[in-house]
Design a protein around this nucleic acid. Structure first.
Lengths: 251, 251
DNA sequence: GGTACTGATTTGTATGATGACTTGTCAATA
DNA sequence: TATTGACAAGTCATCATACAAATCAGTACC
């Protein structure tokens, strides 16, 4: 025991007792020594174990709670909620350069947006329906005027998630942000983006989704959204193939 | 002036003193009211200003320090180092207290996990199949020994996302952490958690999912996962109803 | 068999005390 | 004058104690 004070004196001087205790606990949690859902030793036990006062223990727990790693419950104990600090959003580590990463994200989007389309079909309000069609016409306007279509595209999809009346769906898509609508224009799709045929197909897919939601046809809405995103997946997979081929011929 | 205690009682019911103080300070900092480099009021001043004890003040500062927003210097004071927390994850704004929030998250999970189950059924490797069944038996062991089942439950679901061979699915679930498996045992489900009938049903649903994935039956896997999560949704909605009823009778 | 009570455990908050460190003041000194 | 050194006030770090509030497991009771 008194391992903390010893360690502290063993090192230079710095490291406050709280900081060392936080590091210890954090290590124990992320190493799985304290598994998710498990209960930490009680404050009394921690004071005993580490040879520090309750103040130190409480401040250390306060720090972990701020990280979202633990959650104390009065009368019950302190419980581990996450193995890693919540501050690092795992999905944020999207390597936009790698097309495989883009494909992975599209697949995850498919999961969420197909469900969103189905829920939107059953729950949408009149106003939300109008918003969807408005986003649709914005997109068409962007196509007609040759502007960037990505923001309008994203707005259309967000309008649908909003129509689920479950804010988490919109949060999810907003979190992905423009990463969700990959950079076709940038990578190699400059030609494709101006391809009238491609744009028409995109518009048609969107229209089909919007119509299904409008008609409260859940099954059709799901199918249309899935077709749209799987089409998108296929298109980017094609880009992947083409670019790697051209890469080969170049080298 | 005891502004904190007043505010606390003014709101619903809960919200610890530490949390409210943290929010206040955080707001003051990000609003520029307390500029970067500036020194916070001393502990004594803060206790006076907000009408709380030093314990509360110190834990609040410990939380801000964990966020990297302030840095205390012994003998000198506490200084602002950043205007914004080091990083914020967008979905993090989950109010675990509100059951409606839990229900929303379950719905989002349903979207992701139903798709994951389908993908897992088509893509799983032999090893991944084994991992799923291992998680399943861990869960059964937890039930049998009367341990907490939530961690094992989460592990089972994560094993499935892993079998999609798309790391984004696992990242998504890991991001939610235990928020994804709401606190049945904690809130009001102490009785439910020990309910053998409930546990048997849970086990049966899990088994059905695992079997479908094992047999590479995509449709069945999706259906089983959806049934499982929609059942979960219904169960928590029931808790919501019951608790609000009991609340009414109490008041 | 279910219900209400009770006591032990645990976190939340308050308070007082002591030590260590930082900073500014100011007199003593070269 | 400029530098040094002691000193005091202010501040955070830590410890110890106490009580309140919530939880939980067992127990007695009906």
């Amino acid at each position: 025991m008194t391992s903390l004070s010893d360690a502290k004196q063993g090192q230079k001087k710095k490291l406050s007792l709280v900081k060392t205790l936080v590091e210890n606990l954090r290590a124990a949690i992320s190493s799985g020594d304290l598994a998710v859902g498990e209960k930490l030793p009680s404050e009394a036990a921690l004071t005993e174990l580490h040879g520090v006062s309750r103040t130190v223990v409480r401040e250390a727990v306060a720090a972990l709670r701020a990280d979202g790693m633990v959650e104390p419950r009065q009368g019950a104990g302190v419980f581990v909620t996450r193995a890693r600090p919540a501050s690092v959003s795992p999905l944020q580590i999207i390597d936009n350069k790698r097309l495989s990463s883009v494909l992975e994200i599209i697949e995850l989007r498919t999961a969420v947006e197909v469900e969103a389309a189905g829920l939107a079909a059953t729950r949408r309000s009149i106003a939300q329906e109008a918003d969807i069609f408005e986003a649709l016409s914005d997109m068409e306007a962007a196509i007609a005027s040759g502007q960037q279509t990505e923001p309008a595209d994203l707005a259309f999809h967000i309008a649908i998630t909003r129509a689920t009346n479950n804010p988490r769906f919109e949060q999810f898509l907003t979190m992905l942000g423009l990463d969700a609508i990959p950079r076709a224009k940038l990578e190699s799709g400059a030609a494709m983006a101006r391809d009238a045929q491609y744009m028409a197909k995109l518009r048609d897919e969107h229209l089909r989704i919007a119509d299904s939601i409008s008609e409260r046809d859940e099954v059709a809405a799901r199918a249309a959204m899935r077709a749209h995103l799987e089409g998108s997946h296929a298109r980017y997979r094609k880009i992947f193939r083409d670019s790697s081929q051209s890469h080969h011929t170049n080298s």
